[in-house]
């Protein structure tokens, strides 16, 4: 796993320093987290130019609003991932219509093969996500798949319906039931049973 995941305390200190306008801390934060966030952005946006744009926007926001970090939003890297992902989702909604056909001579969109992994599998097999993985395993196949596709592909309900070849209403209820069950499970397991 990336080194950034292993040092939440240091990242929290850097975030605090960044909120005070410390540029060196900002550079260190970028060094520690940018490759992690960029990997995530590439995964969602599938295009390097968009991912670079989103990465810049994300760090710009962190520079301007690092004081909005709260531990309740997760570890620092989790929070940064959330900020990055929200930016990616907004970009996707603006740009998705173009996503299918890049101009000739342009860099082709990244594909799953390019990233050399399938996070949908990693999410339920991978180490490091603890009880979330256990709770994901407890979902029905369609529920799990629709939640993970929405997370990693940034799909809307309509796009999910297309991808999963199912009626819109059905897909919506997969997502909602999946999320409800996840919530119950995450609450039931509680913070103390974190295990790897």
């Amino acid at each position: 796993m990336s080194s950034a995941a292993a040092e939440p305390e240091r990242l929290a200190q850097l975030l605090a320093a960044v909120s005070g306008g410390d540029q060196r801390a900002f550079a260190q934060l970028y060094e520690s987290c940018s490759s992690h966030l960029f990997g995530l952005l590439l995964r969602i946006l599938q295009r390097r130019d968009w991912a670079e744009e989103a990465l810049q926007d994300c760090f710009l926001k962190v520079w301007q609003k690092s004081e909005t970090y709260e531990p309740a939003r997760g570890a620092p890297l989790t929070w940064l991932s959330t900020i990055a992902r929200y930016r990616a989702l907004d970009l996707l909604r603006m740009k998705r219509p173009e996503v299918e056909m890049p101009e000739e001579g342009e860099e082709p969109p990244m594909t799953l093969a390019d990233t050399g992994q399938n996070p949908l599998d990693s999410a339920i097999e991978g180490e490091g996500i603890g009880k979330l993985r256990d709770c994901m395993r407890g979902l029905q196949e369609e529920q799990r798949r629709s939640v993970l596709l929405a997370y990693y592909e940034g799909y809307t309900h309509q796009e999910l319906a297309q991808e999963m070849d199912a009626p819109l209403g059905t897909v919506k209820s997969w997502v909602r039931r999946g999320l409800s069950r996840l919530r119950e499970c995450l609450e039931a397991v509680g913070g103390s049973m974190e295990r790897e």
Binding site: A27, S34, G39, L42, A75, T78, P119, L132, L148, R183
Partner: peptide, 28 residues
Amino acid sequence: QYFWESHLGRLATVVNPVTPAPTVWISL
């Protein structure tokens, strides 16, 4: 919102890191 951010955000940790081009930092 924070409940979900702190939990679902962990899905991000299974994505492989990719180093961005140095120009991103420069423009930033």
